[in-house]
Nucleic acid binder design. Structure first.
Lengths: 159, 159
DNA sequence: TGCGATTAAATCGTGCACGATTTATTTAAC
DNA sequence: GTTAAATAAATCGTGCACGATTTAATCGCA
């Protein structure tokens, strides 16, 4: 057998954090080949996915959906702008906000990317039920970590 | 309620990849506070965990356990060396290899880090059975992604 | 014994993440 | 209407990840 992906080392094999950490890298690797053809990185693909679903969003809106802030998003969006997939323009009414919109090329890329999700589900080889269950499990972990992180930083609770 | 951590956006909520991606960030955030006291980042903590379990490893061995290569590990190990937690020295017999060993300070840090796993399981609030099941689920996903990635890159299979 | 192939780290360049700070704009209170 | 507080992006510095390449040591084999 080639891939001893589980039980890599006894010191780590019981750590959920390591399983998530390493699986995130695996997803990244898996997407790298797929998305390379489209000229996208994985985080860029997530941004494009949001815009394909609903165009014309502010940086803040994208950040809410991705759990990222402008310090990460601004450079990433500038790269997508440099690739001519989207435009960034200050909102007419509220010039604090920058509105992000797909260009025709950005919209057109949706068709080329349409096959991507199927490649992933093929690779995962899980039933829709299994998939949903896995997503629920991981999201539950995420929620608990976020709650614990904020309470640890602010023991008084919501203020 | 404060944390709408699931269902952040309809375009992403069905993506397992996003759940993993976002949860990895949550773990990182959770560990940031905990490990900040120890002067460690999260990947550094993983390296230290390996060495606490078994000292004196080569860069390649650490890389196998973490699924990382020297391009990532060398700078990280240099920073740990700069923190005086470990030493890096060429192997006497095979000078291609660099052996990584804990310093007394590195070994001593194990005691201070002993409380970390309990903080995590507290936050997760899962039974040992649930935890194991979650780890198995995530590792299964990891294995399938890795297999799919290598076969995609090398359709002929093992050569 | 010599020399090409292999192996182990290191180096280089790019792109995230993220804490902290800065800049610019809007709002809200007076 | 002025100005202090709040808000949205951008900027800055540090530390991963990782493909690609380079450097150096060892191995294999005629």
């Amino acid at each position: 057998m080639k891939h001893e992906v589980t039980a890599a080392d006894t010191a780590l094999e019981n750590l959920l954090c390591f399983a998530i950490y390493a699986t995130e890298h695996s997803f990244n690797q898996f997407y790298r080949t797929l998305l390379g053809d489209l000229g996208l990185t994985y985080p860029q693909y997530l941004v494009m996915t949001l815009l394909w679903d609903r165009d014309d969003r502010t940086v803040l809106e994208l950040g809410k959906a991705l759990d990222l802030k402008s310090n990460t998003l601004t450079p990433l969006l500038k790269r997508l702008e440099a690739s001519a997939l989207l435009s960034r323009r200050r909102d007419r009414i509220d010039e604090r906000q920058v509105r992000v919109r797909l260009t025709p090329a950005g919209k057109a890329l949706k068709r080329k990317a349409a096959q991507v999700p199927a490649c992933v589900t093929d690779a995962l080889d899980m039933s829709p039920k299994e998939l949903k269950s896995a997503i629920d499990t991981v999201n539950k972990i995420r929620k608990r970590l976020k709650d614990a992180t904020t309470t640890a930083e602010n023991p008084a609770g919501s203020v």
